[in-house]
Amino acid sequence: MNSINSLSSISSTNIKQLFSRYKIMALLIAIAIIWAFFSWKTEGGFVTPRNLSNLLRQMSVTGILACGMVLVIIAGEIDLSVGSLLGLLGGIAAIMDVTYHLPLPINLALVLLCGLALGLFNGYLTAYMRIPSFIVGLGGMLAFRGVLLGVTGGLTIAPVSSELVYLGQGYLPQQLGVALVIVLFVLALVLTWRQRVNRVRHSLPVHALWRDAVKVLIIGGVLLAFVRTLNSYDGIPVPVLLLLALLGLFSYITTQTVFGRRIYSVGSNMEATRLSGVNVQSVKLWVFGIMGVMCALAGLINTARLAAGSPSSGSMGELDAIAACFIGGTSMRGGSGTIYGALIGALVMASLDNGMSMLDVGTYWQMIVKGSILMLAVWVDVSTRSGR
């Protein structure tokens, strides 16, 4: 009996380790299944270039929020105010555009500064005033929504200028899209080679050359399919281009900078990090500041995509952002997570939203499915990390 229990325990442990190691691969398989199902149910309508372009545009708002939220969760905190803050900043952008006719660069700068200031305010309350981030976010959710209703009078602010609309509805010229893919492929090649050289220099194990070559070729194939699909419609949407830029920027910050390593350290063991001389409060302050800037960008894109500032914008946006992070492998305990994982999680959520909308599934069912997936993602995180 003891030997059977031992074998069962070893098998369970191996399954957990296997799932943890290949979680992103499992997510990609899940996306493939979701797309295949909706393609079947819509008789191919789901995977048309037009719908995929629309899907990626819809995903961009959640993806931008997820870029900031993943840092907050890795640092061991949570922010429930992001949906309301997105709506408020998007409403401010619409008012400055429609009512005051501010030039687009000034409008963008002011909205981003407002987002940074409000994010730092949330961070100050959490890090320095020691108010739990859950309470700060909950209070912000109510307060920011109230301010939005106040400044808009509960009315939709429209129509916004064509310059602002371009941020949410514009496309990159097809020639530039092809050039972008070539640049990204060369960048992947250079980074892969640089990683091999660094591992050799530090006497670390190096993968077989063919494995890195296959990886680069797969990346090239995905990039080529990506741009060909979108170019067959109207080109790469501007919000998707922004999301790709944020993916590169935040991936670099989290993996190649001291600040990024400190975020993981704070989330893993805050007390040990503090005793090692790191200003933990400052790290948390700036993580919330970055979250505020991401809310500003998401608010701008959302307003531009709708061509209007709505008092209901951003409702339940915090659920989608948090769910995207957890689905993408970010640990609810902090100290673990990736930007690309969060964006894959955002793609899962957007795919479900888009597919269920095409099938005319009731709103209540959509909420039930998304809530269930969030609980499933957290359960997977807990079960794969238990006993470590």
Score class of each variant (00 low, 15 high):
M1F: 14
S8D: 13
L18Q: 14
F19G: 06
F19N: 03
S20H: 10
S20A: 14
R21T: 12
M25Y: 15
L27D: 00
I29A: 11
A30E: 00
A30N: 01
W35P: 00
F37A: 10
T42Y: 12
T48Y: 11
S53W: 03
S53A: 13
N54M: 11
I73T: 00
I73A: 02
I78M: 13
L80T: 06
L80I: 10
G83C: 02
S84T: 12
G87A: 10
A93E: 05
D97K: 10
L104F: 02
L112N: 08
L113R: 08
L113C: 07
L125E: 01
T126C: 07
A127H: 04
L138P: 03
M141S: 04
A143H: 12
F144E: 15
R145A: 07
V147E: 08
T156I: 15
E163R: 14
E163I: 09
V165R: 12
G168P: 01
P173T: 11
V183F: 10
A188T: 05
A188N: 03
V190N: 04
L191S: 11
R196Y: 13
V197M: 13
L204T: 10
H207Q: 14
L209E: 12
L209S: 15
R211N: 14
A213T: 15
I219N: 04
I219S: 11
G220D: 01
V222T: 12
L223E: 08
L224V: 09
Y233R: 12
Y233E: 07
D234R: 15
P237R: 00
P239V: 05
L242R: 11
L243M: 05
G248S: 07
G248L: 15
L249I: 05
L249N: 01
F250L: 07
Y252C: 08
I253Y: 02
T255D: 13
I263C: 04
S265N: 03
V266K: 04
S268E: 14
N269V: 01
N269M: 05
A272M: 09
G277D: 00
S282Y: 13
S282E: 15
V283P: 03
K284Y: 12
F288K: 01
G289F: 14
I290T: 06
M294L: 15
L297H: 09
G317A: 05
L319P: 09
C325S: 10
C325Y: 09
I327W: 08
R333M: 10
G335F: 07
G337K: 01
Y340E: 12
I344K: 01
I344S: 02
A346M: 13
A350L: 08
A350G: 07
S351F: 12
D353H: 15
S357D: 11
M358R: 15
G362N: 12
G362F: 11
T363A: 14
Y364W: 10
W365C: 08
I368Q: 11
S372E: 05
V380K: 06
V380Y: 00
S383T: 15
R385E: 14
